[in-house]
């Protein structure tokens, strides 16, 4: 294993991403970025068997279009983590912001803390590929908006009442799990809450265990709690809206 350490302090993202590219081309299998603060597009579009460690606040669009690498962030991230990501893993030891997992098609994102608005927006699945977003804290409005596939799991470890509004608005595929109750009035257009089946429980257990491994949390009390499952009412929610349909 070849490890490369880069002090990112004051380095423009463009330069930093070239340095990362050079390191990968030189055979690095693990890259450690120290003193990251707001650099964008880290590992954007990278298709390589590489591990990235980010220390600091990762900038917008971390792991966008990423196809394979594993990223661990020790700090918070800014907007758009995993934007249109295809494959790989992102583990964030902090909070996620808005549009985590935007249009993601595959891979996994684990956020230790809270996530912001429109998380999982338009995630989709394709054949065996399906994307997963797990957050340990809570989520804000428009969770799983337009979602077309994949899994969003909100563990709500703080046990605060869930307040994210318009959950799953426009959802037409995939599933959202929220630990605890999601009152009816928070559900978006086209979303409904249903009961969990054995397969749901199994999936939650697996993902909670994985979360527990990354962040050193005992998953048992988490996955043994009550969850709300939110799914589309229909896969063609607007079929009747347009006269020509």
């Amino acid at each position: 294993m070849k490890e490369v350490v880069i002090d990112s302090k004051g380095i423009h993202y463009k330069v930093l991403n070239f340095m990362i590219e050079d390191a990968i081309n030189a055979g690095a299998t693990k890259i450690v970025l120290e003193n990251v603060n707001g650099q964008r597009f880290l590992l954007d579009g990278v298709n390589a068997d590489v591990e990235l460690e980010v220390h600091g606040t990762a900038g917008d669009d971390l792991a966008a279009f990423m196809n394979g690498p594993r990223v661990t962030v020790y700090g918070n991230v800014q907007d758009g983590v995993g934007n249109t990501m295809n494959r790989g893993l992102v583990v964030i030891h902090g909070d996620g912001r808005d549009i985590v997992g935007h249009s993601m098609r595959g891979g996994k994102i684990f956020v230790k803390g809270d996530v912001g608005y429109r998380v999982g927006i338009h995630m989709k699945q394709y054949e065996d590929n399906y994307p997963v977003v797990v957050a340990g804290g809570t989520a804000m409005d428009f969770l799983g908006e337009y979602m077309a596939g994949g899994v969003v799991l909100i563990l709500n470890i703080g046990d605060a009442p869930f307040t994210g509004d318009w959950v799953g608005t426009g959802i037409h595929g995939g599933v959202i799990y929220v630990r605890g109750d999601v009152p009816e009035f928070l559900l978006g257009i086209g979303a409904k809450a249903t009961d969990l089946e054995a397969s749901d429980k199994k999936l939650i257990k697996e993902l909670a265990e994985e979360y527990g491994r990354y962040f050193g949390v005992d998953p048992k009390p988490i996955y043994e709690s009550r969850f709300t499952k939110i799914v589309p009412i229909s896969h063609r929610p607007y079929a009747k809206m347009y006269t020509d349909d």
Binding site: N37, G38, Q39, G56, T57, G59, D60, N76, Q78, R97
Partner: peptide, 10 residues
């Protein structure tokens, strides 16, 4: 951006 704040107060 968070980075803008962190840059002056990490």
């Amino acid at each position: 951006e968070e980075a803008a704040i962190r840059e002056i107060e990490p």
